[in-house]
């Protein structure tokens, strides 16, 4: 067994510096690497390019890095929930590349899987396609999209073991598995870290080969963005 365990978030984030490109798992605030984001928001690193489906809310998630103006460029598919984000974007302080959600996921997966690029129909004929190579397959138009090339990928899983194997829970899975192994270094934080051998190999979602560092996360807030319920009848 190759041990991927590190003691804490500080050790897990060793090597991060200004002007790097980071990828973050999570959809809205669900399944975001809360510990890594909290730590990064307290470091003096700036000029970051961040890949994340969303940009957090003003006081949580990547909103914390936005508040301190640590992010130079965001690559996301939907950024509707964050007023500070919108302000920085409309004023031109923050560079934003909005891309289709499936394209974002696939650019992660392509990097993980060793594909330099791929064709997708998503965005053909729209602003997203501007300047991109276009090609017709089976009578349908597609555009060429490239794999991401990031320095760090930060993901959050439900359970993990010391070998770096990961299991996700519910829709907190989202982009996390696609980011594992997509960057030069993948940092996984887990709600429950167990010794190798305790997780059933049949149940592993992401094999440890895609993870360089794993640590036991702490104090998960797991904030709910839209609490919707139905009455008991």
């Amino acid at each position: 067994m190759i041990n991927k365990t590190v003691a804490n978030v500080e050790e897990a984030c060793k090597g991060v510096s200004s002007d790097m490109m980071f990828m973050f798992g999570g959809f809205g605030l669900s399944g975001i690497p809360e510990n890594a984001i909290g730590y990064l928001s307290k470091q003096d690193i700036y000029g970051l390019t961040c890949v994340s489906n969303n940009a957090g809310v003003d006081d949580f998630g990547l909103g914390l890095l936005l508040q301190r103006k640590q992010i130079k460029k965001m690559i996301s598919s939907y950024v509707g929930e964050n007023a500070e984000f919108e302000r920085q974007m409309l004023s031109g302080e923050l560079e934003v590349e909005l891309i289709p959600q499936g394209t974002l996921a696939e650019r992660c997966r392509a990097a993980q899987a060793g594909f330099p690029a791929f064709y997708t129909p998503a965005g053909y004929g729209t602003e997203v396609a501007e300047g991109k190579e276009v090609r017709e397959f089976n009578g349908k138009m597609h555009i060429l999209e490239y794999a991401f090339d990031a320095d760090f990928g930060f993901v959050k899983a439900w359970k993990g073991d010391t070998a770096g194997n990961l299991i996700f829970k519910g829709t907190a899975r989202n982009f996390n598995p696609n980011i594992c192994g997509a960057a030069k270094i993948t940092v996984a934080e887990v709600e429950e870290l167990v010794p190798a051998g305790e997780l059933d190999p049949n149940q592993i979602h992401i094999p440890g080969i895609f993870v360089q560092r794993i640590f036991q996360g702490a104090l998960y807030e797991k904030r709910i963005e839209q609490r919707t319920v139905r009455p008991r009848t």
Binding site: P100, G102, G123
Partner: peptide, 12 residues
């Protein structure tokens, strides 16, 4: 500018 989310993939 909220973004397209999955809409461009869906409609394409």
């Amino acid at each position: 500018v909220k973004g397209m989310g999955g809409a461009m993939d869906l409609v394409a």
